[in-house]
Design a protein around this nucleic acid. Structure first.
Lengths: 102, 102
DNA sequence: TGCCTACTTGCCAAATGTGCCAAATAGGTC
DNA sequence: GACCTATTTGGCACATTTGGCAAGTAGGCA
């Protein structure tokens, strides 16, 4: 009998939830190329800097990013490259969805 | 200059959000072995059947599951096996988080 | 036809997530 | 120390998600 280990799946959901936002997916996708500081990411995203800072904190708390203070700026880095493998899967799902709708 | 293609990341977030719930992660993990009907999953999960049905609908609408009526029951199947690759990555993230906390 | 089982849907209260503004903090530079 | 820039935090309104109950639907079977 398969049992639902709530603690295990809660912990996993915490990580997935951290990725479950368009801005945060963009941040992960952008940081795979190189690291950026909060201001640079804010310019790309076009939201309030406090909003971007909070998104970065969510990803950092999930263990997906780490941050590094350099001079006046805080640079964010991708910590878990494996999350990028997921992107191709998601795109595959989207493309198949579009095919089925057509 | 990298630009934030909101439509693209919204669409991707829709799929990730569908997975961003402990019960739904459990369902995906369980259906990788074999298909189950709503009642069977409800017994494993221990929630109201309407709650489980709604979770299944979320995953179906995201294109992660498909359903098939057989006799009196609706069987749900995993449509996108690639989402399972993500599980190992999440577990790696969790394990590293635990190491860093220790 | 009527009943039963297996679901799905509507509704609603509670919980959670989001985004902006304003205020606080933290380091560098003069 | 005073000031400036970069970032984080607090607070709040608004939107979304969640879960259970009750009601509705759909097909099988006597």
């Amino acid at each position: 009998m398969i049992s639902y280990d709530k603690d295990k799946y809660n912990e996993m959901a915490r990580i997935v939830k951290a990725m479950a936002h368009p801005t945060r997916l963009f941040i992960i996708d952008t940081l795979k190329r190189q690291s950026y500081c909060v201001i640079e990411l804010t310019e790309m995203i076009g939201a309030d800097i406090s909003t971007v800072s909070k998104h970065l904190t969510v990803l950092k708390n999930a263990g997906i990013l780490w941050d590094e203070k350099r001079g006046n700026c805080v640079y964010y880095h991708l910590l878990s490259n494996c999350v990028l493998d997921f992107y191709q899967c998601i795109i595959t799902v989207i493309e198949r969805n579009e095919m089925r709708e057509a």
